[in-house]
Design a binder for these strands. Structure first.
Lengths: 333, 333
DNA sequence: ATGAAAGCGCTAACAG
DNA sequence: CTGTTAGCGCTTTCAT
């Protein structure tokens, strides 16, 4: 591999001069600049990013921690980050965190060893204090999809409580009196918040959310299927279900139809995420839009801004609220 | 940030000794080893990956070039690579290539600057010679989803021609006499091969593929919709359509139904990919399974094997053949 | 078993 | 405008 020395030798100049042209630095005569550029091209010189990072103490990669890149939700999240990364000539260093505290810790550790000065982390399991610790070690540390009060200015998050409320209000408006709720059984806050918000508005209107009509399962179609079966087995009547996410909702709809219930004529279903599945399922899913890509872009920009400055930013909240997308799966009772 | 020197000083040993325990090297007394480990933990020492890469001339990242990570197909591909990367304690450095030769070139360039010694590249636009060139510069250079004769031993690819044949045979077996074909209009080989294979078996059975029944559009649901409308507008009757991929097929099915055709009673549809969409659309899509994840894992393993050895591997082909998945969208005529 | 020292390829003062 | 030089943090002979 050709090094800066090789270029310097070939050009009959010092490495310093070559370095200057590589970095578009000033104080190089146009003549030499062109000469050196030509030689670099001829030799196929590529500056060693590791060496540059080592000496300049700054990396050109943005670290990203997500549990699993094959999940469309996280793929879109990564894509949002990638878009702004490219604008800044940076690349994504991906560290998949899985769904345990230990694997999340390991994921970010690898990023830290690479000295990423900008990191966007999706962490659900690591204790808040630990995340606060990272925010001290890494200037551009940003948390996405979680709110931690102590580092509120570094958090980009979705108001899941309000999401639950919105779903509840919509169902109420459609005149549903017997509502069910299917949430993820993952031990994270999101399903709890969505459930609470949902329950809150129902009860405020005097509509009870029967405990038998609240089920938990894995947040995928199979989980939705299982939960829907439980709901059916309970014998309790219901005319609407608020489901944790679109993937589960698809499973719920299928199961409902397999059991002779039409959606939305007999049962209304509201999903969450507004991912690709929602638009192409039959019926098309009424759901809550989770602006992941936008949030991811925001997170990436914030991360870079933080990494660039030295002052701590204002402690402002960066909260997003999901938007109701009315399609075909929820109708008036 | 604490360095190896700090650890050495705190432990009262030389940096060499610390380096040995970091790398689990031999020739360190157990006593010191433990002492040093403790001190590293206390100090929160993290070896600088850039410095290590610089001196050891080997990176612990596997470079990945894909056009766009938000596409589920590439997300799954990246996931396959990530899985084997993790097994080898490596991470993914993602470089999105977009869909032009220039952006592909730029994407891999960044990886080269990082001195990735293992790279899995999805390239459709770069000329073959250029890819051959990279394979000389990077020991672990592997191409996925494309066959280049000169570096066949570094290519993991799908036999799209055979894919087209399989679709054709299936439709023939279902007794279809009027077949249509909707392909991607991207300027790459895949749609050409699929179309050719399809046409080949039809004609071998004396069934013509009418030119009016071959349409091209963007490989997404919207493109499928447009192409299906053109097909309908042509006035030519058809009872089956072979569609470039599942995403388009979804658009095709919707359009067909909106126009009063039932799938598969009136028209059969065969997709390609067997992605998440195929399982949850209504009707469930009959499609050709593209084993992306498996291929990606294979590619990653190959890349690492190549990077590790010095001999060039045997010139064996690493071809995959898509598998017909019968679901609900194709039926007997 | 341990340490001293020579770089890896590059940037950034500091001289000139 | 250009060159010299001192590291960045780490691995790795080569001595001891």
């Amino acid at each position: 591999m050709v090094t800066i020395k090789d270029v310097a030798k070939a050009a009959g100049v010092s490495v310093a001069t070559v370095s200057r042209v590589v970095n578009n630095g000033p104080k190089v005569s146009d003549k030499k600049r062109e000469e050196i550029k030509k030689i670099m091209a001829d030799l196929g010189y590529r500056p060693n990013a590791n060496a540059r990072a080592l000496v300049s103490q700054k990396s050109t990669t943005i670290g990203v921690v997500v549990p699993d890149i094959s999940d469309p939700f996280f793929a879109v999240l990564a894509n949002g980050i990638d878009k702004v990364a490219r604008e800044h000539n940076m690349q994504i260093l991906l560290s998949t965190g899985g769904h345990t505290a230990e694997s999340e810790r390991q994921a970010i550790n690898l990023l830290l060893e690479r000295r990423c000065d900008t990191i966007v982390m999706h962490s659900k399991k690591l204790p808040a204090e630990e995340l606060v610790g990272f925010s001290k070690a890494v200037k551009g540390f940003v948390v996405i999809d979680r709110y931690i009060k102590a580092i509120a200015e570094r958090c980009i998050w979705l108001d899941n409580l309000e999401g639950g409320r919105i779903a509840g209000r919509h169902l109420l408006m459609l005149n549903h009196q017997n509502c069910a709720c299917i949430m993820s059984n993952f031990a994270i806050d999101d399903p709890v918040h969505r459930h609470n918000g949902f329950k809150e508005v129902l009860e405020a209107s005097g509509v009870a959310l029967a405990p038998e009509l609240v089920k938990y399962a894995e947040p995928n179609p199979q989980g939705g299927k299982l939960a829907a079966q439980e709901l059916l087995a309970s014998g309790k009547p219901f005319s609407a279900i608020f489901v944790y996410n679109d993937a589960m909702a698809i499973g719920v709809v299928t199961t409902l139809e397999d059991n002779g219930f039409r959606v939305p004529q007999d049962v209304s279903v509201i999903g969450f995420d507004n991912g690709i599945l929602a638009q192409f399922s039959r019926p098309k899913l009424t759901t809550l839009d989770y602006p992941v890509e936008e949030m991811a872009q925001h997170a990436a920009k914030l991360s870079m801004a933080l990494a660039a400055k030295d002052q701590t930013p204002p402690k402002q909240e960066q909260k997003y609220v999901p938007l109701l997308v009315k399609r075909e799966s929820a109708a008036r009772m």
